[in-house]
Design a binder for these strands. Structure first.
Lengths: 345, 345
DNA sequence: TTGTATGCGTTATCAA
DNA sequence: TTGATAACGCATACAA
């Protein structure tokens, strides 16, 4: 069979895009055969495959992914939800969440799944459902539940595949992957106890579940020793500036804690700087424990004692769990270990 | 016309998903009418609209985006390419690039355009072309050209809508948005000159176009004064650890620069820490200028003099330019101003 | 091993 | 203002 070039010219197509039909015609085979070749089916002869691939390559043909997604059950797309709002304009506290994102991105890439980043309209459960029903995504990875626990619980009841990085609750209904935040708080508390500190300060917004758990851990440690008292200092936002302001106000109010536990290393830096202005120095006057162990923490002056989360594998685990969920499984939540790195503070 | 419930039951559909057909039947109108209502067409009566919306809402109907994309010219999706590789495992130097990403995400959200993050297969120009031809995206935003200038030039010749954050070359062929890196280098150099420093050190990998321009700017400033000499210290990677190691090695080799310009604030922190171990202190023994003005830079000890890039609007501009490109325009490259913030170092 | 026929869920065109 | 009909580009069931 010869190549029927005129037929190609006669095509009624409006858009100039090359389709599978064109390739089929040019290679002298049928459309399904081209499809088979491109999908690596074994039910095709070597020479046919070669010819098709040659023609496709020559013409720079690329399968239309939208037609594919329309036809198939899976979209091979996962939506990753990030609270960008709290990360704009110098608001990026720690690069921590982005390490997580990088891990997720890499894990999805390996499976050739597309990553839809923070699509619009996801402020309510309805938005999630709509995106899912419209077949824009096979499921969701939410990075940091923050204050969204209620909404996420709603969502999990609606059969929307969902995995969350954050606090792990037994009864949440959705699969969560996260550090053992409670243990992290406990570790900080134990450090303070070992140093015989009694006037503890917790810096962080306990509306966020993960942070509340750290606070709970800290209190659990405090509970073992009667003379310890804990003051809670919530920061309006998680920005460096807001934390610095809060810490400054706290100093001005006359507070002089001898132990401080902050929700992040960046927050720790803010506190150290603010306190220094009031000649309240670490480690001389107070112990301090941060969170996340970001690289500069080790080299800040003073170097910062901090809690380490296992983020290296987190992305891969999140993706793995979501895929299980999408495949109809019921993946269990996972709690990753936390450790403490003792430094000058 | 009454609602024909049995007809719905008789439907041959395989997937349980509700389609526009179903809504049309249930609302007693035709499919195109439903489409019109959902797309806000004015060619539909108020009561019809209401009825359709009621039925659609009641059944939680969501338009299939893949069918939509298949039918329409635009996919309303933009791929954002990030060099995640250099941002894994504590490798995230500055959160800088993520501020950019946040800005882009926000700008795309406002236009209801989806953000496809770092899809796989984009290591070569062919990968970009393939994703574009397969109608997976309407265009690309590349965040940081790094060493990819050549590939990007290739790409721009193939009619792939593309906008890049990075160095702005007059002859690049692609639209670039970026800070005036040369001016940034110049500012650092002027600072050193004002302080009468003569043994300058540039820390950074000049294989990256943006960083090379800063180096060029620094050299331009140096050229005005004969006694100034510049040493180039390339860091293997952009991680904190790699920079720290390089700086340490440099000290061990006996170097004692009296002015240092680093490619990022995080790198500045690494250098300060490494130099301190050798009792080489800033500002006592050397001036230092960083880059990006990340929040902790102001509170590091010593506080870091740094170059500020205008990232606030960058995301919006990148998106705006890409949209112009997609619409067939020829957007011009933009160079954003850089300024210097003088602090202790 | 290959081809024919059909359907996936929309939107666009045209006619009514 | 609405409806019938035809694409959009692909993958699958089934037949050959």
């Amino acid at each position: 069979m010869t190549i029927d070039a005129p037929a190609l010219a006669r095509s009624k197509k409006v858009t100039g895009a090359i389709t599978m039909d064109d390739i089929a015609r040019l290679a002298g085979v049928s459309k399904p055969t081209v499809s088979r070749v491109l999908n690596g089916s074994t039910l095709v002869s070597a020479k046919t495959r070669e010819r098709v691939l040659a023609v496709a390559g020559e013409h720079g043909y690329a399968v239309n992914r939208n037609a594919q997604k329309l036809r198939q059950a899976r979209t091979n797309t996962v939506a990753v939800v990030l609270d960008f709002g709290s990360h704009r304009h110098g608001a990026i506290g720690d690069p921590f969440i982005f390490e997580l994102l990088a891990g997720v991105s890499e894990a999805l890439s390996m499976r050739d799944v597309d990553l839809l980043l923070s699509p619009s309209g996801l402020d309510s459960a309805a938005g999630f459902v709509e995106l899912y029903r419209s077949r824009g995504t096979d499921g969701f990875i939410v990075l940091g539940q923050g204050k969204r626990d209620g909404m996420l619980r709603d969502l999990s009841r609606k059969d929307v595949p969902l995995v969350v990085w954050g606090a792990v609750h037994e009864d949440a209904g959705y699969c969560a992957v996260g550090s053992d935040n409670f243990a992290g708080g406990l570790l900080a508390g134990e450090r303070f106890l070992a140093q015989r500190r009694t006037r503890w300060l917790f810096v962080g917004n306990v509306d966020h579940d993960e942070i509340r758990l750290r606070y709970d851990g800290l209190r659990a440690a405090a509970a073992t020793t009667p003379e310890v008292e804990i003051v809670l200092l919530p920061t309006g936002s998680m920005t460096f500036a807001a934390t610095y302001q809060c810490a400054t106000d706290h100093m001005r109010a006359g507070a002089r804690p001898d132990a401080v536990f902050t929700f992040s290393d960046t927050a720790a830096m803010a506190v150290i700087s603010a306190f220094r202005k009031h000649d309240h120095l670490s480690p001389r006057d107070y112990s301090l424990v941060g969170y996340n162990n970001i690289p500069p923490a080790a080299h800040f002056n003073p170097s910062i004692t901090t809690i380490v989360q296992e983020t290296g594998v987190a992305g891969a685990i999140l993706v793995e769990k979501l895929m299980q969920k999408i495949d109809g499984g019921r993946p269990k939540s996972v709690m990753l270990p936390t450790t403490i790195v003792i430094r000058e503070t």
